[in-house]
Simulated assay, not measured.
Amino acid sequence: MHRVVTGATGLIGKRLVEHWLNQQHTVTVIGRTQQHIEEVFGQRVQAVTWDRLTPAILQSAEVVVNLAGANIGSKRWNAERKKEILQSRVEATRKIAGLLAGLGAHAPALLNASGVGVYGLQTQLYDGLPPRLDESTRLNCDAPPDFLSQIVCEWEKAAQPAIAAGVRVVFLRFGVVLAKEGGALSKMMQPYLFFLGGPIGTGHQPFSWVAIDDVIRAIDFLLANPVLSGPFNVAAPEGITQRMLSEAIGKALNRPAAVTMPAFLLKLILGEEMAQALLLEGQHAYPRRLLEAGFKFEYPEIDGALKHILQ
């Protein structure tokens, strides 16, 4: 089968493309430059730049998985960077959705990246986790309470033309994706290697996570079930705090998790808004719709997930 992936040179995209190539699917990768795509995948995929993307390329596909977007945590936020983060997601989604809307009944399904940040940051509790947030949780997209919720609200809104035209659209609301080859986990592990690991800030903030293996399995599952559409929290069912995460990383690496990273230092390094949104606050997202549809997480608990990822 022919499948189209945007944002394929990122953490999820690389793993997804390799997975589908191993299954003997034909994969078209859409990106900014053909050279970069070929540096990552060689001649094993069809490389198409955004300016050469046509309805015919999409019409021949079984699915389009749109993962395009600037890395949210790679650079300190300022007005220019925030604009880049937002526009890179919205403009890519708007273009894909517009082309699919033009195909109407002949359009493939669209699985569009999104995030649990849409729910906003939750108040921390000192004796457990805040209430679970699932796909039925009411959103405040008219007045998003923070930058992450603004991103996701506008990101999902950009796909509305495809939905209005009858295209099956699934929003993949990812938690923090844990993988050995990159992403947040590789950065979080560094202090532990020097015996300096431990909780961040209070340690009470909720942390929504998912093993990358389950991300790929969830995408396959949603693709294989054409009756499913709309938002899906792609986050492990086990709710944890940041302190629980730090203890699990220490256990997996056989290192102590006793050195607290103070909030003021993170705010100094990253800026207050970025530090709060990405590290010092969080969401307790729950994958209700995936579970109700019959999806089974292979790594539902953090200890087992980290043992698998870091083995």
Rank of each mutant, 00 (worst) to 15 (best):
F41H: 02
N66D: 00
L67N: 04
A184I: 09
V227W: 14
V48L: 01
K251F: 10
S246F: 09
E154C: 05
G7P: 07
G13D: 03
R89F: 03
R89M: 08
H106G: 15
I163V: 13
S114F: 06
L86G: 00
G201E: 01
G175C: 02
L193Y: 14
D134C: 01
S88L: 05
A68L: 13
L67D: 13
R81Y: 12
R138W: 11
L99F: 07
Q242M: 10
R15D: 02
P144E: 12
V176M: 10
E272V: 11
R94I: 02
F41E: 15
A158C: 05
V63Y: 00
T260K: 09
V170W: 03
R44W: 06
P237Y: 12
L111H: 13
P145H: 03
A258T: 14
V227T: 15
Y299A: 04
A263R: 15
I249E: 09
T123Q: 15
W50Q: 05
A109Q: 14
G250M: 10
A165H: 02
R132C: 05
V27T: 08
L178Q: 08
V167D: 04
E154A: 11
I12M: 09
I200F: 12
P55H: 11
C153Q: 02
L129A: 12
V169G: 00
V116W: 02
N71I: 03
K296Q: 15
G128A: 14
K95N: 14
L103K: 10
A293G: 03
V177H: 01
W209A: 07
A97E: 04
S186Y: 03
M189I: 12
S88W: 04
S60K: 12
E39L: 15
Q160K: 08
A258H: 14
G10T: 00
I30Y: 00
N254G: 08
L228E: 03
A211N: 13
A158K: 06
T6R: 03
G104P: 07
I249D: 03
Q124H: 09
A235N: 01
R3N: 04
G69I: 10
F295P: 02
M189F: 00
L178V: 06
L223N: 11
L193S: 11
P131L: 09
V169S: 00
A184L: 10
P131A: 10
G183Y: 03
A47R: 05
N71R: 15
E292T: 09
R76F: 12
Y299N: 05
A235W: 00
